[in-house]
């Protein structure tokens, strides 16, 4: 294991009255939330509800048009986060070199990089593919590589945007296992999905979002057994939301 840059946690993450508008439409509306360390949060909601936007705002890829998003430890906060996207973007180089590139950007020394790459490839079951060009891997393997690359950075927080959206059941299973392993290694998980089964399997805490508004934030047990919001109830019953 490599030593983290410093021992201070960047969490909790605090969102205060966060809104995001584009083209005159408010796509995220008045979100006030606090992400404590340690849990696995799963955000669910229908397509177009603003799940991906929300993650991008938290990760700093987008700036809120109103309100503030604050990490407890602001300096270097971006170095302690990683994100896995719905469609993995791999560079046109080998599997190992893709991870190496990410580590190089974080100025990890060459000697440490080799060990880290070995470890994460082993942990994600990709070791035999280390020298393959990343772009010829199946989409499931590419998503595992995206997880390996994120894991190599040893983030305190990992954002995942519908990481299994286009995968088959076997790949979904192994991606979920890897997410659990990353969490067990000490990383805070914040992810989106529209797969309710996956949300039940993974979540400690559920955020329900509809039309840019967080309508319910609750521990997973309570949310799935007795959701308070009527739209959340309808969503769990599989009804269309308007």
């Amino acid at each position: 294991m490599t030593a983290p840059l410093d021992d201070t946690s960047i969490l909790p993450l605090e969102l205060t009255d966060v809104s995001f508008a584009a083209g005159g439409n408010r796509l995220i509306k008045d979100v006030t939330l606090r992400f404590e360390p340690g849990l696995k949060t799963v955000m669910i909601g229908p397509n177009g509800a603003g799940k991906s936007l929300f993650l991008r705002l938290c990760h700093g890829l987008l700036q809120p048009t109103q309100g503030s998003i604050r990490w407890q430890q602001e300096t270097g906060a971006d170095r302690h986060q990683a994100m896995v996207f719905q469609r993995p973007v791999m560079l046109r180089r080998s599997v190992a070199a893709n991870i190496d590139y990410a580590l190089k950007l974080r100025q990890i020394s060459r000697r440490d990089r080799g060990d880290i790459i070995d470890r994460v490839l082993h942990q994600t079951g990709l070791r035999r593919l280390a020298d393959q060009p990343a772009r010829v891997l199946s989409i499931g393997e590419q998503q595992k590589l995206a997880l390996a690359r994120a894991w190599a950075l040893e983030p305190q927080v990992l954002f995942l945007d519908e990481p299994t959206a286009s995968l088959d059941p076997a790949a979904i299973h192994s991606v979920e296992e890897i997410i659990a392993a990353i969490h067990d290694a000490g990383t805070r998980i914040i992810m989106t999905t529209h797969d309710l089964g996956q949300a039940r399997r993974i979540a400690d805490e559920v955020l329900f979002i509809n039309r840019g508004r967080i309508l319910e934030a609750a521990p997973a047990d309570r949310f799935f057994n007795a959701p308070e919001n009527d739209l959340a109830q309808a969503f769990l019953r599989g009804e269309l939301l308007w």
Binding site: R56, H59, L61, D78, R79, A82, M83, F85, V89, Y101, A102, L105, R106, R149, L153
Partner: peptide
Amino acid sequence: YEEQMRSLG
């Protein structure tokens, strides 16, 4: 590539 690259720093 943009989002992925910016995410990686």
